[in-house]
Write a protein that binds this DNA or RNA. Structure first.
Lengths: 217, 217
DNA sequence: CCTTCAGGTTAACGCTCGCTAACCCGCCTG
DNA sequence: CAGGCGGGTTAGCGAGCGTTAACCTGAAGG
């Protein structure tokens, strides 16, 4: 919509990037506007030339990442459908897309599930809607492979896999990660492994998961 | 220290419980002392008869849960060793213990990986030490089953599985969970499935990786 | 050359919030 | 019955923080 075509890292974007980093590090309330300003070389109230307020920055960040996550997922699913890919390949594409986000935009991923309730009602509703749609994409992809899962089970499984993938930012501080490609591959295997074990019939890693009679909320 | 043996839900514990809930809901900085007081029926500064300050509450909460997590894990591992259980059963015990925490003490679990850096240096060091020891317990249990994993891979896998298990608090708000037992079993399968897929050799959907009859306790 | 305006600056206001001060009261205990 | 004392209360201080006001400046544009 009103997002500029972007060409060079404009000041607004600089501010958003630094704000995201700081918010993720110390929490929304834990960061002062002076700090954000200092991080981009201007001081304090200069930010108000670019944003209506601190809240507006958070809103733009959260809405932005929700949109990008959802758009990325939807695009991948459409491409998979167009290319006639298998359900497995489609799910793999979703996973890889999410991993890219988790590894490239760690601060945003952190914010995304940490500061949602600091938003104005309208913004929060929009973010939640996008999140829900994104989850539904995943649920659909998962159920295409494991049809024996109930809607509820699939949703829980998807949420927890998000938790798994989004936990990468956490361990950046304390322990070092392997190189990006190795990490991505490991995360992919872990996510896939978790989902493959979701059906009640599947023990550790069942290949065939017969419809088990016990399915019911 | 001067911690009493406790017997009935004393006022201190009431305060801690409510503080945990509020901190988890709105963040440490997002909750005022007046609110915490109101939650237990007293108002504002009355809290200072029980705690040195707001920081002290957070510190006690975080140190407390770290200790309980670690102690619980260590106890389970010792019992497993004493009973001569298989590595698989030992890991299952760890997973079940963590699931109990995640389901019973959601606010604390949330706090645990969200507000760690609001602590005084000494407290933070203690919490991190306990966390590290707890992680090492898991890493040991995992490597006993999957010796082909490097130390680093195992650590990453364990961290992400924590992310998976700890994500339950998140979806309590938006979507309802199945009953506790069903949820616990599902979480167990997901965690086990993720770990079983950690070794690079294991294919995504895991056709192999030994079927494990891992039943809950 | 004068104007405009984007993008800064510093000063200051007002509110919130953690915490302290001062006071109070019911209940044991000697 | 006196007197601690545990556990409250309200009033208020002081710091921090988001935000606004007022002012400045350098570069485009007619």
């Amino acid at each position: 919509m009103s997002s500029q075509p972007v060409s060079a890292p404009t000041r607004r974007e600089q501010i958003l990037r630094e704000a995201a980093r700081l918010f993720a590090e110390r929490g929304f309330h834990g960061v002062g506007v002076d700090e954000i300003g200092a991080a981009v070389g201007i001081s304090g109230p200069g930010l108000y030339r670019h944003f209506a307020g601190k809240d507006a920055m958070l809103a733009e960040l959260l809405v932005g990442i929700s949109e990008r996550l959802h758009d990325g997922g939807r695009t991948r699913m459409e491409e998979a459908a167009a290319a006639g890919l298998s359900p497995e390949a489609a799910l793999d594409a979703l996973i890889d897309g999410h991993i890219d986000f988790a590894l490239d935009d760690r601060p945003l991923i952190t914010l995304h599930d940490r500061e949602l309730d600091r938003l104005r009602e309208s913004d929060r509703k929009q973010v939640r809607k996008l999140q829900r749609q994104y989850v539904e994409l995943w649920v659909g992809a998962v159920q295409a492979i494991y049809p024996e899962l109930t809607q509820l089970e699939a949703r829980v499984a998807v949420h927890t896999v998000f938790g798994l993938l989004n936990s990468t930012p956490h361990l950046s501080g304390s322990s070092a990660l392997p190189d990006r490609e190795t990490t991505a591959a490991l995360l992919h295997r872990l996510a896939r492994g978790a989902l493959s074990a979701a059906p009640a019939g599947a023990a550790g890693a069942g290949a065939r998961a017969k419809p088990q009679g016990s399915v019911r909320t």
